[in-house]
Design a protein around this nucleic acid. Sequence first.
DNA 1: AACGAACGATACCTCGACGGTATGGGAGGC
DNA 2: GCCTCCCATACCGTCGAGGTATCGTTCGTT
Lengths: 312, 312
Amino acid sequence: MDLRQMRYFLALAEERNFTRAAARLHIAQPPLTRQIRALEQALGSVLFLRTPKGVELTEAGHALLDEVPNLLALAQRARDRAQLAGQGRTGRLDVGIFGSGIFDVIPRLLARFHAERPDVRIVLHNHTKAEQIEALRERRIAIGFNRLVPAENDLVVETVLREKLVVALPENHRLARRRKLALADLDDEPMILYPKQPMAGLAQRVIQAFTLDDVRLRIEQEVEDVLTGIALVVGGFGFCITTESSTNLRLPGVAYRPLDCEHLRDIELACLYRKGDTSPVLAAFLEIVRGSPKRRARKISGTRHLIRESRQ
Amino acid sequence: MDLRQMRYFLALAEERNFTRAAARLHIAQPPLTRQIRALEQALGSVLFLRTPKGVELTEAGHALLDEVPNLLALAQRARDRAQLAGQGRTGRLDVGIFGSGIFDVIPRLLARFHAERPDVRIVLHNHTKAEQIEALRERRIAIGFNRLVPAENDLVVETVLREKLVVALPENHRLARRRKLALADLDDEPMILYPKQPMAGLAQRVIQAFTLDDVRLRIEQEVEDVLTGIALVVGGFGFCITTESSTNLRLPGVAYRPLDCEHLRDIELACLYRKGDTSPVLAAFLEIVRGSPKRRARKISGTRHLIRESRQ
DNA sequence: AACGAACGATACCTCGACGGTATGGGAGGC
DNA sequence: GCCTCCCATACCGTCGAGGTATCGTTCGTT
């Protein structure tokens, strides 16, 4: 019993005439006769009564006819789903994100991917750098975004873009009148440092630059995420060095000024995924990621559809 | 894409190893490799990643694996149902019955059939003789029971049994003291005649016999069914000639005595069905019907399971 | 009553596909 | 470095699918 016989059976059951059913199936009448007979023998039941005017269904035929359309529909669905999944048009993409990365480029990438592959479910996971690497190895996520990612031999790290750094400071701060700032301008100014704890990539770089340029560092507060940092800036606690994409975080009373510094020129945003991952969904997403830099000037928009899960 | 490939796919997806899956399928490994590749080409999606240690499922493979067990189960169910229906082990039997036929042999036949074929739904339809014939032609019933059925050229009439006739009369009637009665004993006695209207088979025969034997007929009441007739006997309106199987209708105050009459010896109970009806359910039921006479001495029992519908 | 049309069954043929055996090639493990 | 395991490839025989031609039966028509 195979699917071809099921299709033949259905055609004959509907046409109630071998000749017409064969025509509909684009085969000659004798092969149809033979296939139906083979099916009847396989089942051990007569399915059709042959009459001079055509055929009619027996009870066994009716019983089978009750099932066959479901069967064929299910087969079609199985085929469709496998095809769609194979093209990466359906399925799911688990993405690891981190605190300050969620303001500009990542939501835009996800929005574009969603527009292209509306049937792929995007699931976001907030992870620190170390957690992302672990989650990738355990296949809980397919791709992660982070900054200053160390090389790992089972993971691929691709730089998505390099972001300039900016200084966030109170609008009424005396330095806010300047169009751009050098590191020396920040000498001994109260500073809000972040991230404090989770894989201190940016903070480390900032401290390093201050040391290299021999500028005095006065850490007023240490915080764990940008949002808190900027909130403290609004509160007048000091300035904060952050990435350009954070300027999307427009809070009243805060001003952003470009930072011009040789040792702290820009900071990379990278994505990382498993070496040898053949997932078509991932491949499609990486295409979006790689094609992105050209159009990165736009602002956040249309990200409402995103599913956000702290952890799956 | 056919069911064989689905079975192969499932085996490989479960074993995650071509060699073992092939062994499980009782084929060599190369044909399995070829079938899987053919399936992948048909779908246009890679289903398995070949690794040195075996294979693992791709996303397309997982998507297909979600569907395949359902598909195979449905195919199996379709096959089973068609087979069962073909053997007459499932399905439905619509039976036409009539008033006085429901007391003895028909319920026994139905009970025996139900015991043998518990998955066949038996549906009873109360019909007069003419209605039964019409219902048979319109395929609303597969078999009918009746008495004194005229020959029809598209229907088969088979005598199920010949029933002796009895006289039902009040217990305290003077004739009730006799062990058996002749027609002459009923001369000018008040009589309850049935059936009055629906195809007066028995009534006609009774009148005919009285005429032939030159016995005076005094029709006190004409009724349409046995039950009413016997009820009137209980009420003392007169006697009633009915079939032996009616004696199962034990009402207080009524006595049944065999009728000994040359011209009214017995009356046949026949079943009728469509000529050329190949229904396996019907065939199975007819076997029961034909095998019945040998054991017809038993009383009614176990008929509670019957579905009774006045009309479907 | 004989003929023709319609329909399914049968006979026979060709070719493609399935399964089998033998063998190749690549990755890990002792 | 060799052995083992696993999948892929090459080649062969057989079975089965579909095609054409034709037959037998049953209607309806002439």
